[in-house]
Structures are given as C-alpha cells and as structure tokens.
Amino acid sequence: MKVICAGFSKTGTKTMQAALKELGYNVYDFMENYKYLGNDWMKIFGHGGTTEDFYRMFENVDAVTDVPACCFWDEIHKAFPDAKIIFTTRNEQAWFRSWDHQWTRNTQPMFSVMRLLSPTLYRLNSFIELVVEVMGVKQKKHWLQPNTYNKLLARMSFRRHNAHVLLNAPKDKLLVYNVKEGWEPLCKFLGVDVPSKPFPHKNVRGSIVEEALAKDPVLIRGQREFLFTAAAIAVLVPFGVYKTVNYFRS
C-alpha cells in the first residue's frame, strides 16, 4: 500500500481513482473493495478488524479511494505506516449538493425493484446499506419515492470525518488536496512525473451510475438477472391467472 485516499465520498474520489490509475497505481475503489474484499469488510462491519486483517487485505494493492476504505484510513495506515495519505477536500455546501444529488439518483424506486429481482443487486445493496451506516448516515426506505436520509447527520458525519483526518494524520505524510488543483501538487507529493494527458474529471453530476451500469461486470450481471426474472414473471403470472380462472370455471 503506497497511497491512502482519506477524503469522504463526493470529494473527488472517482477522479482520484482515475488519476492514480493514470500514474500507474493499482487502485481499489468502492467496487473493487466490494468484489474482492466484500467478505472481509462484512466481518469488519460486524465484528471489527485488526491491523493484520488490513495488511492482508491490502498488501498487494497500491492505493485505496472512496468508501469503505476512507472511513478506515487510520486503521489501514497502521498496517502500512509508510503509505502517503491524500485528503481530498471540498466546500461543505458543494459537497452536500453533490451528495444529495447522487443519493437521489441511487435510490430511485426502479432500482429498488431491480434489487428485489436480482440476487446480485440485492447483495450489493445490502453491502451499500452497511457502508452508509458505517459512514454515520441514517436512512429511511420508501417504495414509491427515493429513500430519505437525515441530512443534518450526513453533514455532521462529513465534518467529523474531515476533523479526524486533519487532527490525526501525520503531517509529514499528508497532502490536503482539491482535485481542481490538477496534476502538479499531486505528482510533486507522490514524487512522480506529470503526465502529458489532461487531468481526469469523473462522476460529473452523478454520471458514475450510468457508467457503472454500462461497464461494471457485477452490475451488468445484475441487470441480466433482473430482466430474466421480470420476463419470467411476465410469462408465469398471466399463465397462473389463466389456469386459476379455468380451474374455477370447470
């Protein structure tokens, strides 16, 4: 482990993942943590974890970004004390607008139906709900409208996380960074050359949802399961009604 990105979700974490990948790092973002380390995280969420656990999980990973890793940045750093820490920052109002927009997109009623009809999406959603709980955000589920959450507690979680990083991260290993600053401060901190490519800008207005649905193997499998189940229901329900009606007519 060389780089721990400790910034809260919606502070440019997807941009950081893309930038670090461009610099040649093997990066675990949210989906990698879920796909490859999901069982380990479930154990940590339920029973806790040790420094040895985090070392085993990330010994062959160069960098981590986004949740759940950012919530455990200090524990990961105990396992890799030589790792550098990048704390991505964002104005609270801008952060909250982006967070709220992403939340609304991710909790549309259609996604709730898809999760019910796909075992893959159901498992992923269960993991996400635990991550949200770990982040300190309380939510309430609804069927015919997006899930709601306690907005005050979300803001407080953001503030607590930021304060914890700034107070406890070792200053000689910490970069306080806004992704709008581009390549120069990031590459200087990491001791690498500045790429010739433009600095990436990912998840603009929550576009990561559409990108993931189109490209991520887990989500693609989940969509196929949903379509198969929905098609089966569309065939079997009318057939069942037909057979029932005929039974009572006979």
Rank of each mutant, 00 (worst) to 15 (best):
A83Q: 08
L152K: 12
V241M: 15
Q139T: 07
T244R: 14
T15H: 09
L186A: 03
N147Q: 01
H77K: 07
L227M: 13
W95V: 04
P146G: 11
F248C: 01
M110Q: 06
C70G: 00
Y149I: 03
R249I: 09
T88W: 07
F239N: 06
N168T: 12
P81W: 09
K10I: 00
R160T: 13
H77C: 02
V235E: 10
K84Q: 10
F96D: 10
R249S: 05
E133T: 14
F199W: 09
Y28E: 06
Q108C: 04
S196W: 02
M114F: 11
L167M: 10
Y36G: 00
G222F: 07
V113W: 11
V113P: 02
N26P: 00
N33P: 07
W95Y: 08
K140H: 09
C187H: 08
C71P: 00
V134I: 10
F80V: 03
L219M: 15
T104C: 12
S207D: 15
P119T: 02
V241Q: 10
R221M: 13
M156S: 12
G191S: 08
L219G: 03
S118H: 04
K35F: 02
V137E: 13
E22S: 12
W103Y: 10
K84S: 07
V67P: 00
L236Q: 07
E225N: 05
T50I: 05
N125I: 02
P217S: 03
M114N: 05
A212I: 05
P119F: 01
F80P: 03
F45D: 02
N60H: 12
S126E: 15
N203M: 05
V131L: 06
L116K: 14
I233L: 15
W99N: 08
G48F: 04
L116G: 13
T107H: 12
P146K: 11
F228L: 12
G46D: 15
P185V: 03
Q223W: 08
Q108D: 13
T13W: 08
I85G: 10
A234K: 09
A231I: 04
F72M: 13
M16C: 06
K14D: 12
R97S: 01
E75N: 11
L213K: 10
D74H: 10
V176A: 07
K2D: 13
P185Q: 07
A163W: 01
K78E: 13
A63Q: 10
G12A: 03
P81I: 11
S207T: 05
V204F: 00
V209N: 09
Q145F: 04
F87T: 02
C187T: 15
P198V: 03
S207M: 06
W183P: 08
